[in-house]
Amino acid sequence: MRDDPLFILVVVAVLIVAGILLLGIGSFGKGGDFNKKYANKIMRWRIGAQFVAVLLILLFVYLRGGS
């Protein structure tokens, strides 16, 4: 499974979503001008990346799902 390019793409997408989420949570926790200016944009990026990640996961399950 580790050699499967689609699996690697899914893992990268999930890690990107996690990174964006941590960036958003960190900026929220710190507060300040950066949070006021970019918090909404960061969470929009997360939603878009999460949408792509979910689509890739569904594609992986559909194509590689056992029967």
Rank of each mutant, 00 (worst) to 15 (best):
M1A: 14
M1G: 11
R2Y: 04
R2C: 07
R2L: 04
D4G: 01
D4K: 03
D4A: 02
P5W: 01
P5V: 04
L6C: 05
L6R: 03
L6H: 00
L6Q: 03
L6M: 04
F7R: 01
F7L: 04
F7G: 06
F7N: 02
L9H: 04
L9N: 09
L9I: 00
V10T: 09
V10G: 10
V10H: 07
V11M: 02
V11S: 09
V11F: 02
V11K: 03
V11D: 02
V12E: 08
V12Y: 06
V12R: 01
V12L: 09
V12G: 08
V12I: 07
A13N: 14
A13Y: 01
A13S: 10
A13T: 01
V14Y: 00
L15A: 15
L15M: 11
L15I: 07
L15W: 00
L15F: 05
I16L: 09
I16M: 11
V17N: 09
V17F: 05
V17C: 11
A18L: 13
A18G: 01
G19R: 00
G19E: 00
G19T: 00
I20Y: 04
L21R: 02
L21H: 06
L22G: 12
L23Q: 05
L23P: 06
L23Y: 12
L23A: 13
G24K: 01
G24D: 03
G24I: 08
I25R: 05
I25K: 09
I25H: 05
I25P: 06
I25S: 11
G26W: 06
S27H: 12
S27Y: 11
S27E: 13
F28S: 14
F28C: 08
F28Q: 10
G29T: 11
G29V: 14
K30W: 07
K30E: 15
K30N: 13
K30D: 13
K30I: 12
G31R: 15
G31C: 13
G32D: 15
G32L: 11
G32E: 14
D33P: 07
D33T: 09
F34I: 13
F34P: 05
F34V: 15
F34L: 15
F34C: 09
N35S: 08
N35A: 10
N35H: 07
K36D: 13
K36L: 10
K36W: 03
K37N: 14
Y38M: 10
Y38K: 01
Y38V: 10
A39R: 04
A39V: 05
A39D: 06
N40W: 04
N40F: 09
N40Q: 10
K41D: 12
I42F: 02
I42N: 08
I42Y: 02
M43F: 02
M43S: 11
R44I: 10
W45K: 12
W45Y: 09
W45S: 15
R46M: 13
R46P: 01
R46N: 14
R46C: 14
I47Y: 07
I47K: 08
I47P: 05
I47M: 12
G48E: 01
G48C: 07
A49M: 06
A49Y: 06
A49V: 12
A49C: 03
A49K: 03
A49G: 10
Q50A: 15
Q50W: 01
Q50T: 04
F51C: 13
F51R: 03
F51T: 12
F51G: 10
V52A: 14
V52E: 04
V52N: 12
V52W: 07
A53F: 03
A53P: 08
A53H: 04
A53S: 11
